[in-house]
Simulated scan of single mutants.
Amino acid sequence: MRSKSLGSVKRACLTFVTLAACVGVSVSLCPAHSQTIAGHAIGEDGSKLEADQRASPNLTTEYTTVELSIPNGIDVTATYQNGSNKIIRIEATPRLPEPGASGQFGNFVFGKTSLSEIRSRFGSKGLLFTGVAPATATPDGGVTIVSSYEVQGTNIIASFVSKISAASLGDLNRRFGEDMYGHIESVAMLESTVVADIDYLKLTRGHELVYDVGYAPIVWEDAMSPVGVARGISLARISPSQLPAHRIYKGPINAPYFTDASARNFQTRIAEGMAGGPVFAGEYAVIQVGCGTGCSIAYVASVRTGEVSRIPIDDEAAQYLDLKYQIDSRLLVTQSARGEALKCHMQFLTMDDGEWISLLERDIGPTESCYNSIAQNLRN
């Protein structure tokens, strides 16, 4: 992490848990609806909010907080400064416990968008105010984790609050023991979205900010943005170091355990691949099996548990398949030709808690592009 406080710079780090990131996204948007939550924005006149909504003065009498219920299953809390009447903080939360309501940013969804997806979307863990802990216990035994980012070109900070329930914490503890926090980001789900004026936050949380390595301000993507808004995604920004392996397994190599029925056809080949030890994500062997001219199937096998799973490539049997991975990262890149589409397709995957998550897919050219290696195509 890097820390910045009114002209001074020092090094620091998050003390609670390391949560990985993977993809940097730049978005070009029409500014008409930028930084809005449920139709309201920082800097608006808060005194004009509906008079029949509940309002309660802040204890300092400097601020008024208004609670709004809007039709799409979202509750909004808006705080404005008495005197200027300018809104300085807006928070949106789902009204009902069932997931599915808009997270008020892009395609984020309350109760469904994971902390891992949030951090992956923005390419870092964000920033912290040193006066506030990044994670706090909740009365029901769960934990909330806040990921905050400056909104590019504004004086606004957007925060995404994720929660892991007590039941999920208990399950992680039973499964992973001391390593449980290495898996928390895939279980913690978006609970609320907040935008606030940075000067207000510095008054209430402290002036010193701590920034994650690789941090960059985000471009706000309003949930009301029209379909078809263009995005520019730079493949070159995706780095294996953004998804570090939680640990490198150095214990005994277990016998393969086949949960994928197709893998049983290649038991000998998979066992031989596992004998060489892990080469991906700290504990996995990668096995690529030929199935004809230019055709192959790929599996990963945990040398720690023995579990074997198929790498989720779109085609049943990939043509001109190339894989890129390394032992100290959970990022795996696949490249293969799509026969019917006559396209060379690249996919970025991560392995979290034994499950594959697709981060990004992209056609990179005609089938002939797959004659090049992944590294070559990423340089082009």
Rank of each mutant, 00 (worst) to 15 (best):
F105A: 02
P99L: 10
Q335E: 15
G339E: 12
E62G: 13
I198L: 10
S102H: 04
L169K: 02
A230C: 02
H345W: 15
C291K: 07
G7Q: 08
T64E: 07
A375Y: 08
Y63G: 07
V194F: 05
A261Y: 10
G354Q: 10
E91K: 08
R89F: 03
R205H: 15
A255L: 09
Q81E: 14
L203Q: 13
L68R: 12
R247W: 13
T65K: 10
G290I: 01
R89E: 12
H345R: 12
A261H: 05
K48L: 12
G251I: 05
C30N: 15
N85G: 04
Q242V: 03
S165E: 09
G106E: 03
A166N: 04
D363H: 13
G73W: 10
G39K: 08
G206C: 09
K324V: 01
D140N: 15
Y371E: 14
S147N: 15
V132N: 03
V227C: 04
S296Q: 12
D314I: 06
A275Q: 13
T77L: 14
S162A: 14
I374L: 07
P31T: 06
G39Y: 10
W356A: 06
E178M: 03
S120T: 13
A55C: 00
L59H: 11
G290Q: 08
K250P: 00
F280I: 06
M346L: 14
V300C: 12
A32K: 10
Q242N: 11
L243Q: 09
C295Q: 13
L359E: 13
P240K: 06
V151M: 09
G170P: 01
G232T: 07
E361C: 04
M180D: 04
S114G: 07
T136W: 11
L359I: 09
G228E: 05
E91P: 02
V279I: 09
T65N: 03
M274D: 06
R247I: 08
T113F: 04
G365D: 05
Q104F: 05
V187S: 01
D363N: 12
H33R: 15
A133V: 02
A137P: 01
S114E: 12
N82W: 02
D212N: 01
N377P: 01
I164A: 07
L14T: 11
S34Y: 10
L127Y: 00
A133S: 04
R379S: 15
V109W: 03
A38Y: 00
S102L: 10
S84M: 06
Y284A: 05
A38S: 15
A166I: 06
P139A: 11
Y284C: 08
P94W: 07
F258D: 11
A236E: 11
V9H: 12
L332T: 01
S239Y: 03
I311Y: 08
L14W: 07
Q152P: 00
H183R: 09
E316K: 07
D328Q: 07
C22V: 06
P252I: 08
N173D: 04
S8Y: 07
G123T: 05
S336E: 13
A275G: 13
F129P: 00
I87P: 04
I118D: 02
L331W: 03
P366L: 07
R362D: 04
I42M: 10
